Amino acid sequence: MPVVAEEQVLVVPTSKFHKLGHFQGFSSEVDRYLPALLEGDDLAYRPRGEMEEDPSFKQLIPYVLFQFTDSTDVKHVFQYARGGGGGEKRLHAKRSVGVGGHISSDDAGAGTADDVYREGMRREIEEEIAINTPYQEHCVGLLNDDETEVGKVHLGVVHLCVVESPGVAQREDDITDAGFKPVEELLADIDGFESWSQIVLRAMYG
């Protein structure tokens, strides 16, 4: 049987993140962190399996939220449950408000590291969901959670997509029970969400 090449994912040394200023939870200081993380010779692609067990590196993960405000001015956020298929096994059965995933060496091409990051984010979104509404996207912060095994080896970059209508739907089989719910409902059931979702919901809407 042919050997399947292992996915190579984009990582930065954890020491670089610490040098920029370690934090636990959510930081809105995008300009302090993201440009510096996406430049320099220490940005590299490494085997995903190895990186999942090595907290000396942080895998950069776009984490994209979709927000819709209805006619009564109530904010709704897209949320879903993770199934038992592919992806991060340690997060299965948890609910999430973030869409995204690893930046792969397959995303690399001409352009800057920022271009590669953006391409990876676009690919991950297109794989997971279908967007059938105009939206505006901007980066709003970073997520770090060293209190979980998953969090120790990942660093989230939080993007907010403000959509004109709730025209967002699941595309991957691994995403189930998806749809927009009022922020108050999500906060009331926050213990059912993965840790990154809990952090970002409290930081942005709590």
Rank of each mutant, 00 (worst) to 15 (best):
H138T: 13
P134G: 10
W196D: 05
D54S: 08
K19Q: 14
D177N: 15
G98Q: 02
A44F: 07
V11M: 01
A93C: 11
A44G: 05
L20S: 01
G109V: 03
L160S: 08
T112I: 07
I129V: 13
D174E: 13
V99E: 02
I103F: 00
L186N: 06
A178V: 00
K16H: 10
H92L: 04
S195T: 14
E164H: 10
A203H: 00
A93Y: 12
E119K: 14
L65P: 07
E53K: 15
Y135V: 02
G86F: 02
V9G: 00
L91I: 00
V99G: 00
A178T: 06
F26H: 06
A203V: 04
D114N: 10
G86W: 03
D41H: 07
R90F: 08
P62Q: 05
E126K: 10
E7I: 09
D41R: 12
E124V: 07
D189L: 10
D41N: 05
Y205K: 03
Q79I: 00
A36F: 12
V4G: 12
V153T: 15
P62K: 05
D42I: 08
G84Q: 11
S28I: 01
T133Q: 06
V9Q: 04
F23A: 06
S96N: 00
A169S: 13
G98P: 01
V153I: 08
Q136D: 14
K75F: 08
V74W: 09
S195W: 08
A110F: 12
E50L: 09
T133V: 08
